[in-house]
């Protein structure tokens, strides 16, 4: 291996710079290289976080620059944690989160399992299946509002075809009982392909030799599925759950486009509620406290989950 490029660089370094660097340790030089990244991280992530935490103890409103800002202590946190409306949005978010993840994992894994089998047109079907996730959430939200239209919507006609009900007799996005499912269905349609791709990567990472050894031991397909496929694909499945969980916890665009958070507050997820507090009501201090609570919740749950994921990987 030649050192010619390094020598060239050394020779090209201006003498004053070379003199300065000469006395520095490897550790110091390493710090010089990572310092810009650390500075950027502090400026873009850490500083806003600290600033948000500070604002969360005040009654600051960004649309009232001339008003005195008061230190209110824990009042914002107390108001949020005792607000029934916010707990209702948390419940709506939990319902959305749990059901989208359950459905996407089951359907995504099943699709991946089928696609993993070698058959003619395999690539074409993979492309067709992943199309929904390439669309913009706003576009998806918009056209699902048409699909759910009781008078012209395809969804209602399909349901009517199988159940015999009048298509105009139910409204997926206007009914308090159906609207939470309407957003689950739309999100599942859009993001199941993503879960499928991750699962497919997991399934393709399992060496054929393991299945061949199982065949030699006369293990049934069912047993191979439960003792080889699932355990070896599990880290990938868990990764998919983590990604979808984080994404759906902050779900906004698709749901706003579909239901606007309604009817009433039925589909008002925490991110929608937070946006209203921060950028419609302009309660900056209050919404900062709200954001901190959500951050701690997501960070805490994600940390526990990542630990579990690492344990599964180590097995």
């Amino acid at each position: 291996m030649t050192h010619a490029p390094m020598e060239k660089i050394a020779r090209a370094t201006p003498a004053p710079v070379a003199r300065r660097i000469k006395g520095l340790s490897d550790r110091a030089i390493a710090w010089i290289f990572v310092a810009p990244s650390i500075f950027l991280l502090l400026a873009v992530n850490i500083f806003p976080l600290i600033w948000t935490i500070r604002l969360s103890f005040t009654d600051y409103r960004v649309n009232r620059p001339n008003r005195d800002v008061e230190w209110v202590g824990l009042r914002n946190y107390e108001r949020i944690l005792t607000d029934d409306g916010i707990w209702a949005t948390m419940q709506a978010t939990a319902h959305f989160l749990i059901w989208t993840i359950v459905l996407q994992v089951i359907i995504g894994f099943a699709l991946a399992y089928l696609i993993n089998k070698k058959f003619k047109g395999n690539d074409l079907w993979t492309t067709v299946i992943v199309l929904p996730m390439m669309l913009s959430p706003a576009v998806v939200g918009n056209f699902w509002t048409f699909l759910y239209q009781p008078q012209i919507g395809l969804f209602n006609y399909v349901i009517a075809f199988f159940t015999g009900a009048d298509p105009a007799s139910f409204s997926m996005i206007g009914d308090v009982n159906l609207a939470p499912w309407a957003i689950v269905i739309a999100d599942t349609w859009m993001w199941t392909p993503f879960v499928m791709l991750i699962c497919l990567a997991g399934l393709r990472s399992i060496p054929d030799s393991i299945y061949e050894a199982a065949e030699c031991d006369r293990a049934s397909k069912w047993r191979q599925f439960w003792t080889i496929t699932i355990p070896m694909a599990l880290p990938f499945l868990m990764l998919a759950v983590l990604f979808r969980g984080i994404e759906n916890f902050k779900m906004f665009d698709l749901v706003v486009q579909l239901t606007g958070g309604g009817p009433g507050n039925t589909t008002t997820l925490t991110s929608i509620d937070l946006k209203r507090e921060a950028f419609e009501r302009w309660r900056t201090g209050y919404s900062s406290a709200y954001a901190v609570i959500l951050f701690v919740t997501v960070f805490g749950l994600a940390s526990i989950y990542v630990k579990a994921l690492n344990k599964v990987k180590e097995r």
């Binding site: 649309n63 308090v176 309604g262 009817p263 009433g264 507050n265 039925t266 009501r281 302009w282 309660r283």
Partner: peptide, 23 residues
């Protein structure tokens, strides 16, 4: 009022919850 957005959002929520959601 300067707080019109607060007032509007509260009304949107209460009215929609009763008229559309039927709560």
């Amino acid at each position: 009022e300067p707080a019109y957005a607060d007032l509007l959002l509260a009304m949107q929520e209460k009215i929609h919850d009763y008229v559309i959601a039927g709560n």
